[in-house]
């Protein structure tokens, strides 16, 4: 078996007295698509944010592409990564946020380019060319010169996906990418994500879109109170959950 693309061992994260993650272990194979579901406050966002070290874990080890996240291991010694090392690591981990977080002072194309010029060191022209390819890919070829405030939510999220993909990351993390969208705009974003999955990207997606999870996920993880309650192929989780808590959650969300 290939070594996992994402490896999480015994991950815990506390915010003061709140135990947002309480001993989470999982591994994601290259090209695998994992959907994370669970009630609000169950720790989905925290899990994703620990994977690219936007949140520093209280305990546990995270590896992406075999590399320890946030720390450098030399023999028996472990030290915290410096700002530059962390930045280099994050460049290989794409992240898409619920609220898009496009940079409003830049056009859509420039949003997609910025990481390429600032982090990957591409020239303006080369970055623009790659960014254009991605804008085509997410179906926004006609919106390259538009500023975010002139885009719909669905278009903004597609730009955000293009921005993350432009870095050619090893994995993509999606934190409820469609939760802030009007229902009629959800489809266009999910479609792009499906395409990304078909292209072989390793993905972790926190989502409430059960239809998407069923269609696209290789595996679904149900979380509650900072723990993984159960995980398995989508039809197993959705049709024959072993845990009562999973069943109750699904009843509530599908009703």
């Amino acid at each position: 078996m290939a070594p996992p693309m994402i490896g999480v061992e015994n991950l815990a994260k506390s915010f003061g007295a709140v135990r947002a993650l309480d001993g989470v272990s999982l591994s994601v194979a290259p090209g695998e698509v994992v959907c994370v579901i669970g009630p609000s406050g169950s720790g989905k966002s925290t899990l994703l944010r620990c994977i690219n070290f936007l949140e520093e874990p209280t305990e546990g080890v995270v590896r992406v592409g075999g590399r320890r996240v946030g720390f450098v291991e030399t023999g028996a010694q472990v030290r915290r990564m410096g700002g530059r090392e962390l930045a280099g690591l994050r460049a290989d981990i794409g992240m898409v946020f619920q609220l898009f977080y496009l940079w409003p002072h830049l056009t859509a194309l420039e949003n997609v380019m910025l990481g390429l010029t600032e982090v990957r060191g591409l020239s303006t022209r080369a970055a623009a060319d790659r960014a254009k390819t991605l804008m085509h890919k997410v179906g926004l070829a006609d919106k390259m010169a538009a500023f975010p405030e002139h885009l719909s939510g669905g278009q903004r999220q597609r730009v955000a996906i293009a921005r993350a993909l432009a870095m050619e990351p090893k994995v993509m993390l999606f934190d409820e990418p469609t939760s802030a969208l009007d229902p009629e705009l959800v489809g266009e974003v999910l479609q792009v994500m499906e395409q990304v999955a078909r292209d072989g990207m390793t993905m972790m997606v926190a989502t409430h879109e059960m239809g998407f999870a069923r269609r696209v996920a290789d595996r679904v993880i149900f979380m509650d109170h900072g723990r993984i309650v159960e995980s398995g192929p989508p039809d197993e989780i959705f049709d024959r959950p072993r845990e009562e808590r999973t069943q109750r959650f699904l009843d509530k969300i599908l009703s």
Binding site: N52, L54, G83, R84, A87, G88, L89, R90, A91, D92, I93, G94, M95, F97, L99, Y101, L102, W103, P104, H105, L114, G115, E118, V119, A160, R163, A164, M167
Partner: peptide
């Protein structure tokens, strides 16, 4: 969130200040 998005693409603190925060 915009600063986080910039960190997530791998931008360093001085670059984030220069390219994201200052212009706005």
């Amino acid at each position: 969130g915009q600063v986080e998005a910039a960190r997530a693409v791998g931008m360093s603190y001085p670059r984030i200040i220069r390219r994201i925060v200052l212009p706005q």
